[in-house]
Computed example of a mutant assay.
Amino acid sequence: MARSHIADAAKVVPLAAAVTTLAETIRVALAEEIIAGRLAPGTEIDEQQAAERFGASRTPLREALRELAAAGLVTIEPRRGVRVAALTLERLGEMFEVMAETEAMCARLATHRMTAPERFALQALHEASAATVGAGDVGAYDALNREFHSALYRCTHNGFLAEHAQALRLRLAPFRRAQLDGTDRLRRSFAEHAAVLREVLRGDGEEAGRQMRAHMLTAGASLASTMRGPG
């Protein structure tokens, strides 16, 4: 019975997780350039040039810029345009600290509140991401990674907490995606998910929360290392 539930869940997961909008493609590309330092703080992002570069209209471009502004990566000022913001490592650490505590709470509550079908679905999500790790497919892994975390939010069966966690996740989305580009980060992220899942399936909410907190703080440290660059 368990295998049947897992197989059914695995069929649905890739379709739901693989959808990528043009706005998201633009957001990811610009975020990676900003975080890697290829777009320096203060650099103006010309909307017309950016739209032409991505072969997009102003609508998806502006949606991407709004998301980047919410994450603190750019500033948008009326009549003055869009500029790359200065982001300190201290600020980044604060953001991931809040995210780590929020996700730890979600993992702890979800462990005790999720239903059997929800457990099977979470396990299926994790198993589906294994192939993307082997292929080194960051985009596909990122989509399944988002769904893994979102599933835990829903499994808390606390609507307010789930909404808060999702809103925070959206705000930090550019950073969470960029940290996956770190050396061997896909494999390590997958192993960290496995540790969380193991405790969830064992029913140890406290340990699941601790593993999730460590997972998020490790992600933040990986991103900080990327931003500091070599040396």
Rank of each mutant, 00 (worst) to 15 (best):
V12A: 13
L170V: 14
V13F: 08
R66W: 09
Q211K: 15
D8R: 15
L170M: 13
T59N: 12
A208E: 04
E97F: 13
E127N: 07
A17P: 07
F175W: 04
E94G: 14
A23L: 06
L109M: 12
R171T: 15
A29Y: 03
M216E: 14
T226N: 01
R108M: 13
A70I: 08
E32T: 00
P14H: 03
Q48C: 06
P78C: 07
G134Q: 13
F160T: 12
Q179I: 00
T88A: 06
G55M: 05
L89F: 03
R108L: 12
A162H: 09
Q123V: 14
R169Q: 13
D142G: 00
A51G: 04
T115K: 06
T43H: 04
R119G: 06
T102E: 05
R185H: 07
A224D: 03
P117I: 01
R177L: 01
D46H: 10
D137F: 02
G55L: 04
R185E: 11
P117H: 01
G42M: 01
I76V: 13
A31G: 02
T156N: 03
A23W: 01
G203D: 02
A104L: 00
A71W: 10
A104E: 04
G231C: 07
R79N: 15
H126I: 02
D8K: 12
L197S: 04
D184H: 07
D204E: 10
L168Y: 09
V84Q: 00
L180T: 02
R146A: 12
R202I: 09
F96K: 01
T75N: 10
F120C: 08
Q179E: 10
L22Y: 12
A221I: 07
A151I: 07
R154N: 09
E97L: 14
E207R: 15
L197P: 02
V19S: 12
R80L: 14
E32K: 00
G81V: 07
N145G: 11
A50P: 11
F160G: 11
L22H: 12
A162G: 09
R119A: 09
M95D: 15
T102I: 13
A100L: 05
R108I: 09
T59R: 15
L87Y: 06
P78Y: 11
V12P: 01
E67P: 07
R58W: 14
A178N: 00
P41G: 04
R3K: 12
S189W: 06
R198P: 01
H157P: 01
E207M: 13
G182H: 04
A7H: 10
G220T: 06
T183W: 11
L161I: 08
G72V: 10
G37M: 05
S4G: 12
D184V: 02
R146K: 13
P60V: 08
V82C: 02
G159E: 15
R198W: 04
K11C: 08
A100W: 02
H126M: 00
F96H: 04
A151L: 06
E207W: 08
V74W: 05
G72F: 03
